[in-house]
């Protein structure tokens, strides 16, 4: 179970790190090498994003990575095969992040069965609120995979409790409004919000959106269980190539 992995890992470390890549960006070989670099640097879990042509909840950096990957020929089947290779090679949990149409077009049951088959442990589908996700939630439960939902600063306490009920593994809390990849002011307000999140769920909390430096990482320590880094690694790869990934992750966690 994803949740028990996170809890036992937390006994050794106060704050875990989840990173994110877009499969097929800049190409599938580099995706594999990025995962390798991240695992070597000590990342605790990872989101693998399957590219979609209309990534409505993503900001410019991840949007561009999605469309570049598609332009370079990233097919869903290719993403599934590379994901299978990744889960077989590395010993941390991997989740899918993608948009609902990717599941819907494949057939939700078939897609979820395939996820289980290739060793993916859970999924984040940002355009699928639980009200629309009946088939998906049932399939995820059947295969003992973790559907992960998102808390936002706009969510009411009642909404958070509902989302928590429909989730397993952990809750993804976004630090602010808006899309991925913009700056976040990590301030005391955030502490109050995370307190509200804690009160609404017994699941571990991951905090993402705008995390990019060791300072941000340290701010989150003690407030959430997992820090999430997304767009910043793509910026690093664009600037320094895959070789830049490991040093970046080490710096972020306060080593290296």
């Amino acid at each position: 179970m994803l949740e028990s992995y996170i809890r036992s890992r937390r006994e050794q470390k106060e704050l875990l790190l989840m990173t994110h890549i877009v499969l097929g960006y800049p190409n599938f070989d580099d995706s594999l090498r990025m995962v390798e670099a991240m695992v070597e640097a000590g990342v605790d879990l990872m989101e693998l994003q399957i590219p979609f042509s209309e990534p409505m909840a993503d900001g410019p950096v991840i949007l561009k990575a999605n469309s570049d990957a598609l332009a370079a020929g990233a097919r869903v089947e290719k993403s599934l095969r590379i994901a299978e290779k990744i889960t077989a090679s590395f010993d941390i949990p991997f989740l899918f992040m993608t948009y609902y149409n990717i599941l819907f077009r494949n057939g939700v049951d078939a897609f979820v069965a395939r996820m289980a088959d290739i060793g993916i442990r859970g999924a984040i589908i940002p355009d699928l609120p639980p009200e629309e996700g009946g088939d998906y939630l049932a399939a995820m439960a059947r295969h003992e995979l973790a559907p992960i939902h998102i808390f936002t600063p706009n969510s009411t306490d009642e909404r958070m409790r509902l989302l928590s009920e429909k989730s397993s593994g952990f809750i993804y809390t976004v630090a602010r409004k808006g899309v991925t990849g913009k700056d976040t002011a990590f301030s005391d307000d955030l502490g109050d919000y995370l307190e509200r999140c804690r009160n609404a769920t017994g699941l571990p909390l991951a905090l993402g959106f705008g995390v990019k430096s060791n300072e941000d990482f340290e701010f989150i320590r003690g407030k959430a269980d997992i820090a999430v880094v997304g767009s910043e690694t793509i910026r690093v790869v664009d600037r320094d190539g895959v070789a830049g990934v490991k040093p970046f992750i080490l710096r972020l966690m306060g080593g290296g």
Binding site: M56, A57, Y100, P126, D127, L128, P129, E131, E132, H149, I150, F151, T152, N154, S155, T156, R159, L163, V174, K177, G178
Partner: peptide, 9 residues
């Protein structure tokens, strides 16, 4: 209504 959680309210 397949909307991101942030827009639910």
């Amino acid at each position: 209504a397949f909307i991101p959680e942030i827009l639910v309210p």
